[in-house]
Computed example of a mutant assay.
Amino acid sequence: MKGRNMTRWRDPAKDPRQEPKSHLITAEGAERLRGILDHLSRVKRPALSAKVGEAAALGDRSENADYTHNKKELNRVIARIRYLTKRLDELTVVDRLPADTGRVYFGAFVTLEDEEGEEMRIRIVGHDEIAPDKRWISVDSPLARALLGKPLDEEVTVAAPGGETSYVITEIEYRDPTQ
Rank of each mutant, 00 (worst) to 15 (best):
K2C: 01
K2N: 09
K2A: 03
R4S: 10
M6D: 11
M6I: 11
M6S: 08
M6Q: 14
M6L: 14
T7S: 07
W9A: 14
W9C: 09
K14S: 11
D15M: 00
D15K: 00
R17D: 05
E19H: 06
P20I: 05
S22R: 13
S22Q: 14
H23L: 12
L24R: 00
T26M: 09
A27L: 10
A27Q: 10
A30L: 11
A30M: 12
A30F: 07
R32K: 11
R34D: 07
R34I: 00
G35L: 04
S41A: 15
S41R: 15
R42Y: 02
V43Q: 10
V43M: 07
L48Q: 11
K51H: 10
K51R: 14
V52S: 07
V52Q: 06
E54V: 00
E54A: 08
E54H: 05
A55P: 00
A56Y: 05
A57G: 04
A57D: 10
L58G: 09
G59F: 05
G59V: 10
S62Q: 13
N64H: 02
N64E: 01
A65D: 06
A65Y: 01
H69K: 15
K72A: 13
N75H: 10
R76E: 15
A79Q: 14
A79F: 07
R82L: 14
R82V: 13
Y83G: 08
T85H: 02
L88R: 05
L88M: 10
L91R: 06
V93F: 00
V94H: 03
V94Y: 01
V94I: 03
D95P: 00
D95H: 02
R96A: 14
A99T: 00
D100V: 01
T101Q: 15
G102Q: 08
G102C: 04
Y105F: 13
Y105Q: 11
F106D: 13
G107H: 04
L112K: 12
E113C: 09
E115V: 15
G117C: 13
M120G: 00
R123Q: 15
I124A: 08
V125G: 07
G126A: 12
D128T: 08
E129W: 11
I130F: 08
I130T: 05
I130N: 08
A131I: 02
R135A: 12
R135F: 02
S138I: 02
S138M: 03
V139P: 03
D140L: 05
P142A: 15
P142I: 06
L143F: 04
L143S: 12
L143R: 13
R145E: 06
L148F: 01
G149Y: 00
G149P: 13
K150V: 00
K150N: 07
L152R: 15
D153A: 14
V156I: 14
V156Q: 09
T157P: 06
V158T: 08
A159S: 07
P161Y: 07
T165S: 14
S166T: 15
S166Y: 01
I169T: 01
E171Q: 13
E173R: 12
Y174F: 10
R175T: 11
D176I: 08
P177G: 04
T178L: 10
Q179P: 00
